[in-house]
Design a protein around this nucleic acid. Sequence first.
RNA 1: GCCCCCAUCGGCUAGCGGCCUAGGCCACCGCCCUUUCACGGCGGCUACACGGGUUCGAAUCCCGUUGGGGGUACCA
Length: 567
Amino acid sequence: MRRTARSSGRWAVGFQVRALWTKTCTPSASIAAARPGTFCMPPAEEIWAPAITVPAYGGHLRTRSQRRSEHGRPLLVRDVRARIGTFPCMTVRVRFAPSPTGFLHVGGVRTALYNWLFARHHGGVTVLRIEDTDRERETAGAIEQIQRSLDWLGLDFDESPRTGGPHSPYLQSERADRYQTAVDQLLEQGLAYRCYQTPEELEAARTAARHTDDPAAPTRLHRDLTAEQISRFEGEGRPAIIRFRTPLEGETVVEDLVRGRIAFEHRLLGDTVLMRGGGDPTYQLANPLDDMAMGITHVIRGEDLLPSTPRQKLLIEALGGTFPTTAHLSMILGPDKKRLSKRHGAASVEEFRDQGYLPHALVNFLALLGWSWDGATEIMSLEELVERFSLERVNSAPAVFDHQKLAWMNGAYLRELEAGAYTTALNAHLADADSPLAGNERLGELVPLVQEKLAAFGEFDALAGSLLDEREPDPTAWAKLQADAQAPAVLDAAITMLTAISSFTPTAIEGALRGICDLLDLKPKHAFTPIRIAITGSTVAPGLYESIAFLGREQALARLQRARAAV
RNA sequence: GCCCCCAUCGGCUAGCGGCCUAGGCCACCGCCCUUUCACGGCGGCUACACGGGUUCGAAUCCCGUUGGGGGUACCA
């Protein structure tokens, strides 16, 4: 069953792109032949090999590369990709799991998008799960805002807090009993234990151990408490946290779809906290447990979560589950090469919407930030992205967010919009911005004048707002007008000429204005500037003839008179 | 400090040992078009971080160095 990507809400028009000037790009035979939904590939045990825990020998003496290649010849990223890039007979299930600590930022969107594209490409299922295990950090309304942003982008999730699904609930705060059950089981099997350290004791031990050869030691201090010690701590009324009993030797190897094989030594991992003193689960417990419970097959997430991967894998395997295949996406950076954040300006989806970006332009741009199809194709519809996307082509290097290219791409999409769709979308933007121009019945007439000039709807008001509204002229432009010695003569001539012509069309107006050039022996460039400032109040505006025609004779003359009086 | 990831033009990237005197897009700089701003067209600038290997041959494989990023939480 092939799903059709769709947008939602009034921004749907953003997807009606008239023409795509993509460079030649024929879908590869393998993609064309791929059957959505299921994948058969022998032998399954090679893919799901549980091994991965191998004895360490002189662990810290070996280099990363040595560990990586110790099983024989050097293991290349592409070897790993080739091995686990195809899947046994199963349905792909991915999840996007944001925590409701704020708005959805571009990094999160890209993660959501890659998950979504991967699932749709393989005919799989998308799950939206909210990771609200830390209620203190939760922001009011964040869940709704995240959902709204995803809706706007056209990323629909098959299972979510809103839609429900076979693995409800999709809010971690409502799954407490499951986490408790798992912890009880681990405790019973001795795979987890109670730790009575106070935060202060832990911190002190950590500081002391920082420069030793076993920096993770402080997490293991209560790993083997005697019965007496336990009853003493209990007697003191100390709250216990639950820690995972991480193996002391050996290492866990993760085979990542974008990074290849990565080995982590157990002794450096320490004993992960699964449950807080208050009995709340931590991310380290809830996240992998839910992935297992929800049948997640592929975890596609940010590189910042890479270091916690071995802990999660260990936990899932301790619980008898199979760790999903992972794909860790590199970070999105600001111009200063630091991780992108609010400091770098627009970072939330809502800001882009407010500035008048089309959802698909953002999607297209983000798809290309860390992934490419052929190195040449830039503009792709959602359907094309779904068809072409693959984790194999995801770049492992971090990427700087290029605002200028996004603006260019948005302009490209805007220019390809049908006039009607353009008008609808522009109007929707103005309405969202509470602009008095929203609903103006002459908006459509202005579209041909501005369409090729705007990179985003947010620029509309500054460019053409003065044609719909009487407003104060730009001071700089006005000063320029007043300083222009030719202005009085030019404006007088314009008033005369525009009064005289019989029909008030752009063509007739052009003729009249050209007449001024002859009359005063001025180049159009010089003659038109005062007129443009008089008419639009700015040096930057839509075509002069069209603007004057749009205003109509009465209004145009009034503006020329006003300017004449000022010079 | 320790662990992990990463490294091609200013930015996004193509490149999987010979097709590379390194291609595309954005940005930038010229020129053309032109009533401003854009759009469009043409041209230009500029990159394989460095040092060692492996190989007949390396941007591509290996090692190291340097640099950047991430993690090191009873955050996610």
